[in-house]
């Protein structure tokens, strides 16, 4: 099953690269720069999906006390941080082309950065908290608090940007570009699908790896 997923994902990734880098037309304003978007948008989507899974798995772990939910939350958080990092980097490149700055404190960017900090903290907590059930509970609590916090962060930054914006840094609304042609829409849809598959495969692998780690740890404890 996993190998099918990887083969399918690999084939789609090749097709996706062709579509986003060659086939889809350049944008009117952003010219070739628009191609970054076909990487940035799916990566951002996947990181939010990953953190949502952390949230759900954390709740399930705290209510059902089954270790597999803890492993799933942990695996999903690791991949989520990876994709959130890619989101920030690709977003910064895209911002340079679209808004002529590497960074601006617009609500979405600020929220993305805080999101990144929260889940880097989550991984640190995983590393430093006591091993076993107590550490797992700590992580689950943070997985819930952190996810609940994200919309509040977004809302508070948006409330702040009711102030006039500095010239040149532009707001999201002012510089929104349109996916003008159907080719662009198709490319975006395919790349979101491809990256979601990539995420599913990575999550699966990482989850199984965690299971094996746990199993070897149990065996070592039994023999010690």
């Amino acid at each position: 099953m996993l190998s099918y997923l990887i083969v399918l994902g690999g084939a789609l990734m090749v097709a996706n690269l062709f579509l986003s880098l060659v086939w889809s037309p350049p944008d009117v304003n952003l010219t070739e720069g628009v191609r970054i978007f076909y990487f940035h948008a799916p990566v951002a989507w996947v990181s939010f999906l990953a953190f949502f899974i952390v949230f759900v798995a954390s709740i399930l772990y705290l209510t059902r006390k089954e270790q597999r939910w803890d492993l799933l939350a942990n695996a999903s958080a690791e991949i989520g941080v990876l994709f959130a990092t890619l989101m920030l980097i690709s977003g910064s490149l895209f911002a340079r082309i679209a808004w002529n700055v590497w960074w601006t404190w617009d609500p979405r960017l600020t929220t993305a950065l805080i999101l990144w900090f929260i889940y880097v903290g989550y991984l640190m907590l995983r590393a430093y908290a006591p091993q076993g059930a107590q550490g797992a509970r700590y992580a689950a609590v943070l997985g819930i608090i952190g996810f609940v916090d994200v919309p509040i962060v977004y809302f508070s930054v948006r409330l702040r940007t009711l102030h006039p914006r500095p010239i040149g840094t532009g707001g999201a609304e002012a510089d929104t570009f349109n996916l003008a042609s159907p080719e662009m829409v198709i490319t975006l849809v395919l790349s979101v699908l491809t990256f979601t598959l990539l995420f599913a495969a990575l999550l699966w692998l990482r989850y199984r790896m965690k299971e094996v780690e746990e199993a070897t740890e149990r065996i070592r404890r039994d023999y010690a």
């Binding site: 900090f117 929260i118 640190m124 608090i145 952190g146």
Partner: peptide, 13 residues
């Protein structure tokens, strides 16, 4: 590290 990112909205407000 855990506290600061979560309280960002409060600080901002």
């Amino acid at each position: 590290v855990l506290f600061f990112p979560i309280v960002v909205p409060v600080l901002m407000a």
